[in-house]
Write a protein that binds this DNA or RNA. Structure first.
Length: 567
DNA sequence: TCATTAAGCCAC
DNA sequence: AAACGTGGCTTAATGA
């Protein structure tokens, strides 16, 4: 059963039961207490409803705020984005109002501007404002029901409707999880974070002053150069290096690291610490951690490949050293699950390459590949490294450095896998679209790209060739990265469903962090074993839902730890 | 003065 | 070893 719901933003709303194809509809219900009504439906026996609403990030937060969680939903905006993308219409407006306008042949309203993040500040109003793009006077519930029915029809007409329906379901489930994780937050010990910072940088300075260690390093860098230099200024560094007889093309760490001069270690250390200070220092701590929780503002489906993005807080780039501050509450534990070597395993599964699939049946795929790259023994680390670079080159389109001979070896040993990514690259270079396993579609090239490639001769040939190759690398990587992202979404949805079933009462065993191919659960110590089992079950389910019977394995690196840094 | 761009580095 | 995909975020530099 599906239930379309439109909140009135005063605590109530209107609902209507609909069939899954959207065809038959029940009577409209008007309720004053939406939270209670949703909870009643979720508690009722029988199959759980799938809530159909315009946008999860608008409708769901007030429910979660009042401890009313749902199992499943259909997010009209996210599904519209996927459907538009499938037909090469990436970037067109995706709101309910836009979809309704297209359905009715009316002028399509632009999407409302995205709200900005609030940092650690809690949202002001319990019920957010109505950001509907429907023309005033339109029956919002009626529009919702019609657009939903239309989306289901459009999915049904696709070549592989079941796959796309799965994609729509997990994209929506991800949106639910994103709201819940933003609410629950990552357990974060500010005092541990402060200890890490103090150990690295010296005590917290007053506003506007460099921490002691950074100030000392900056002074030492200046002395080594024989002139005053702001180490934060690439332009000044370039001049300073030229002045000491070591001209460099850039001030990137790896390039500077090759220079033999006493300033180099000082500068590299400065860069490392300056990064920590500015990106995840005390300012970040003040802005993003409150009452022992870091609450990232996730943007489900925010990346073209289907990965998530974040708005402020940089939750997807938390440096390793800072993870020391992520600690379970007393009596609780963290259960982390990392899908190791996910992308090459995905390539093995989607390409159907027998040899690669066989290697992907083992725990360490790269080690198994080592033999192909001249490793004499199983533990030959150099052979394993060559295998890894060869594999990554195939998936990322690297051609420089040592990649070329390794790629030739890859092509010989794993022809079908290489054909798969090569074909995607060719499609891209021809300006065509490529899709993930479930049907997420890459954006088309820009009009400027098409003009340049169509080429009336006057264009810069080298630049055009480069943008063609860039596009090829993008589509080459897209087919793998986007499928890996949907593996992660299916997994996430499975874990989330199992956690809800395992909950003994509200608030137990939460999903608190999701980072591309890695999940972190925060659970009472007594539930750790249960969580480990549930993660393994979800992996098995994910594998079979996506790829049916396959030799490929997706081994999870699971750790039960007090601190994330120990995972 | 404020908005935008470039460079650089963090994560996967 | 160092021109290889997706991003976010910060500072310096540039421009209106």
């Amino acid at each position: 059963m599906r239930i379309a719901v439109v909140p009135d933003f005063e605590g109530g709303g209107r609902l209507q039961e609909i069939s899954s194809d959207g065809g038959s509809v029940g009577p409209v219900r008007e309720v004053a207490d939406l939270v209670g009504t949703v909870a009643d439906y979720e508690r009722a026996s029988g199959p759980a409803p799938r809530w159909v609403w315009a946008a999860t990030d608008e409708v769901y937060p007030p429910l979660v705020e009042r401890a009313s969680r749902v199992g499943r939903c259909h997010d009209i905006g996210l599904v519209e984005t996927l459907l538009l993308g499938y037909h090469g219409r990436f970037g067109e407006a995706r709101s309910l109002g836009a979809a309704w306008a297209r359905l009715r042949g009316l002028e399509v309203p632009p999407d409302p501007p995205t709200r900005s993040g609030t940092g650690a500040e809690p949202p002001l109003a319990l019920f957010s404002v109505d950001r509907s793009t429907l023309p005033s006077g339109t029956d919002q519930l009626d529009a919702l029901v019609q657009v939903h029915a239309d989306q289901q029809r459009r999915i049904g007409r696709l070549p592989e409707p079941e796959k796309f329906a799965l994609l729509a379901a997990v994209e929506s489930a991800g949106a639910l999880a994103a709201v819940e994780m933003a609410h629950d937050g990552v357990p974060w010990r500010a005092e541990v974070h402060d200890e890490v910072l103090t150990a690295q940088l010296g005590p917290r300075p007053v506003r506007g002053v460099r921490p002691r260690v950074l100030a000392e390093l900056a002074r030492a860098v200046g002395e080594a150069f024989g002139r005053e230099v702001n180490p934060d200024s690439p332009a000044q560094l370039l001049k300073a290096f030229a002045a000491i007889g070591h001209p460099v093309a850039s001030t990137r760490s790896w390039e500077i690291g090759r220079i033999d001069h006493p300033v180099v270690p000082l500068l590299l250390r400065y860069k490392e610490l300056a990064r920590l200070y500015s990106a995840n220092g005390w300012t970040w701590l003040d802005a993003w951690v409150r009452q022992g929780r870091f609450r990232p503002d996730y943007v489900a489906g925010g990346v073209v490949s289907g990965r998530w993005a974040t708005r402020g807080g940089g939750a997807l780039q938390i440096p390793k050293i800072v993870r020391r501050a992520v600690c379970a509450d007393p009596g609780w534990t963290l259960v982390t699950a990392d899908a190791g070597q996910l992308e090459p395993r995905i390539l093995a599964a989607v390409s159907g390459d027998r040899a690669l699939a066989a290697a992907a049946g083992s725990e360490d795929l790269y080690a198994r590949l080592g033999a192909v790259f001249g490793a004499r023994t199983v533990g030959d680390e150099a052979g394993r490294q060559r295998a890894k670079i060869g594999m990554l080159s195939a998936m990322y389109g690297q051609t420089g450095g040592d990649a070329a001979p390794l790629l030739r070896t890859m092509r010989q040993a794993f022809p079908r896998a290489l054909d798969y990514v090569d074909a995607a690259a060719r499609q891209g270079e021809q300006g065509r679209l490529v899709r993930s396993w479930l049907g997420r579609t890459c954006p088309p090239p820009s009009p400027a790209w098409r003009r340049a490639v169509a080429g009336d001769g006057g264009e810069d040939d080298a630049a055009t060739r480069r943008s063609v190759r860039d596009r090829g690398r993008f589509t080459r990587n897209f087919v793998v990265q986007a499928t890996a992202a949907e593996w992660a979404l299916v997994f996430l949805a499975g874990v989330r469903r199992r956690l809800a079933a395992a909950a003994r009462n509200d608030g137990e065993a939460q999903l608190v962090f999701f980072q591309h191919d890695e999940l972190v659960l925060h659970a009472p110590v007594s539930m750790a074993g249960e969580c480990v089992e549930l993660l393994k079950e979800a992996e098995a389910e994910t594998r079979s839902l996506l790829f049916g019977k396959t030799e490929v394995r997706f081994p999870l690196d699971i750790a039960v730890v007090e601190c994330y840094a120990d995972a």
